[in-house]
Design a binder for these strands. Structure first.
Lengths: 162, 162
DNA sequence: CTCGATGCATAACTATGGTATATATTTGCG
DNA sequence: CGCAAATATATACCATAGTTATGCATCGAG
């Protein structure tokens, strides 16, 4: 039982990763590679979770801090994000989304609706429900980390924070 | 009704993309960035779908052909893939997974089980079912394309192939 | 006050993706 | 059958995304 269950879950996760990777690529190609995935991911996180520090945004995106610094450099140049000194710590900066960034994000969403949604146009409602539930699960599991599961399970970590 | 439904679906797809992107990054970081995502994605596709041409593999991965050529160059160097001339067309090559590649894929799966599964350890069975269903949907929708939805819907395209 | 920890930038590197182009081969049409 | 268009892949060049290592300034705890 446990053996069968473990194999199934590994397979599920494997396929989830492969399909996730493909989906991200599908979206990029369907949109003509107009907006790099790192950009829309970052804007979407800022839009959903609000302004935050560079390191926090890196953690939320699951990339390294220097990588995020570099990415934000370009986005700052393009006027997509704000950088303001953090009053609580003069080493830190708070990154927020600008109106231009919001417009860009909205534009990307329109592109999504036009280019990617048709791929899912004929899904029955039950399938949409499954996707929505999965998104909720993944959102919870991929949210900003404070501890790895080796130290504590995600659910336990949330209890400790509360 | 239609307006409300369209917005919800766009939001669902947006969040699906963001969580997908994060999940791919989470897996990479959890595994110590040991196996690049493009490599495991490629090996997993070859393992699941069998040997195929360079261009087919590029399409299956949703990347450009020259990009796939480059990636395969490195994988070939590492002994992960085979390249054999396609008897049906002397321009083409058939790419397959080697035993070394299979081992590498198995190793990656082990790493998945060890590093990523704990993040999902406390999921109830209903949530696993939702993930599995979503994976099935995404696998179907991201499978090797023969037509874009603008021309025909994915389901219709499958009927035409049958 | 001191020292270890932390936040971010920079440097150097590798990997992943794109488009454009070239060459050889295949296919389809007249 | 011949020819032109289409196709398969490699190469070149470019930009971006990611990493680790490092440096410097600042913070926080003892």
């Amino acid at each position: 039982m446990v053996y069968i269950c473990a194999v199934t879950r590994t397979q599920t996760l494997e396929q989830l990763l492969v399909t996730s990777s493909r989906l991200v690529r599908l979206a990029a190609q369907a949109a003509g590679n107009a907006t790099p995935s790192a950009v829309w991911r970052t804007l979407s996180i800022l839009d959903a979770e609000g302004a935050m520090r560079v390191g926090e945004l890196a953690a939320a995106s699951r990339v390294s801090q220097p990588g995020m610094t570099r990415l934000l450099g370009g986005m700052d140049d393009d006027g997509l994000v704000t950088r303001s000194a953090d009053a609580a710590d003069s080493r830190a900066f708070i990154i927020g989304i600008t109106p231009v960034g919001r417009e860009a994000l909205a534009g990307w969403r329109d592109t999504l609706a036009r280019t990617l949604e048709p791929w899912f146009a004929d899904l029955p409602d039950a399938d949409w429900a499954a996707l929505e539930r999965s998104v909720a699960i993944l959102a919870e599991r991929t949210a900003s980390p404070t501890a790895s599961p080796a130290a504590t399970s995600p659910a336990t970590a949330q209890e400790e924070r509360a």
